[in-house]
């Protein structure tokens, strides 16, 4: 089974994890409907190396994973804000 490394709990099978979608920054809520629609609906959705939110569900640990969405390789995982640690 495919495995993933939780920064707190270590290497676990992928079924213990849930993907929370792309890491993206929220625009100013007063940005207007067009920009807001772009933010909530549109995605950078061609295959690439992405930063995504993932959660280790038994411990509810949210973290960031860098993943290649063409080959399904997880390049690294880290707690939000601790990429360089």
């Amino acid at each position: 089974m495919k495995q993933m490394i939780c920064p707190i709990n270590g290497t676990r099978p992928i079924v213990e994890f849930t993907c929370g979608g792309d890491l993206q920054s929220m625009p100013d809520p007063h940005c207007g409907d067009t920009v807001w629609a772009d933010y909530i609906f549109n995605r950078n959705n061609a295959p690439t190396i992405k930063q995504e939110w993932w959660c280790h569900t038994p411990s509810n640990t949210w973290f960031i994973a860098k993943r290649n969405t063409l080959t399904d390789e997880v390049l690294c995982t880290y707690l939000y804000g601790q990429e360089d640690v």
Binding site: M1, T18, D72
Partner: peptide, 13 residues
């Protein structure tokens, strides 16, 4: 499958 992937691989799960 529960996450984004641009490949048609199959899994044991």
């Amino acid at each position: 499958d529960p996450y984004e992937l641009h490949a048609s691989r199959s899994t044991l799960e």
